[in-house]
Nucleic acid binder design. Structure first.
Lengths: 104, 104
DNA sequence: CCTCAACCTTACCTTCTGGTAAGTACCTTA
DNA sequence: TAAGGTACTTACCAGAAGGTAAGGTTGAGG
């Protein structure tokens, strides 16, 4: 059952109050600046935004693009691997959709 | 993007240090007693085992079968919905497997 | 009467997560 | 010289998650 630990790893990556919210804003190849994300997710604090972005960058889901300009400009987008998450999340969604009818 | 909250809900259900470990022990229609699970997962404490089982029962993933005997006997197995999780977890696993080759 | 087995509950404590608020660095503009 | 905009960073705190240890219920067996 190393599958268990594999899935646990994946959950560990996706866990975090804001990861999925950020992901969904980035799906579809969108490229957003830090401040765009702040505006898109008003409830998030800068600390959390940066923290979750950094973690996802470290996990290889998100790519960080720094433009060395005077008013700093940093953009974020998904890596190919990050984009590939879509179908897997869909599978989870489909599973969740099964719930209502089949409840004993 | 209510998909985001949908997936968040699912993660909320699967989250928890021991849920997946227990799930994988129950996959395949297995029916296990409390003490079987304790033995199968030596690192878990009784408190955690019961807590995670109860949460999964509440979420409709696990079914609890009580036999009113003198040395109590309680069995746990997956509901149909719980079994249906398998393919979704497989999708996550497949996604995780994509990682190595495509790392830039 | 005492103990044991199996399942669960409770109290308490530590660690982790997320939240707020303030501060930093840099150059541009007034 | 002072203010401002962008992208962070830091210090501190509260609440939740998880861990340990002990207790409690029930009837059979000694």
């Amino acid at each position: 059952m190393s599958a268990a630990s594999g899935v646990e790893n994946v959950l560990r990556i996706l866990e975090g109050r804001w990861k999925l919210v950020i992901l969904f804003h980035l799906f579809g190849g969108k490229v957003l600046r830090f401040s765009d994300l702040e505006r898109a997710i008003p409830a998030i604090s800068q600390k959390m935004l940066i923290q979750q972005l950094r973690q996802m960058e470290g996990d290889g889901i998100v790519r960080r693009i720094v433009h060395h300009q005077v008013p700093p400009k940093v953009e974020y987008c998904l890596t190919d691997w990050g984009q590939a998450l879509c179908p897997a999340l869909d599978a989870l969604l489909k599973w969740a959709a099964l719930r209502e009818p089949a409840e004993t």
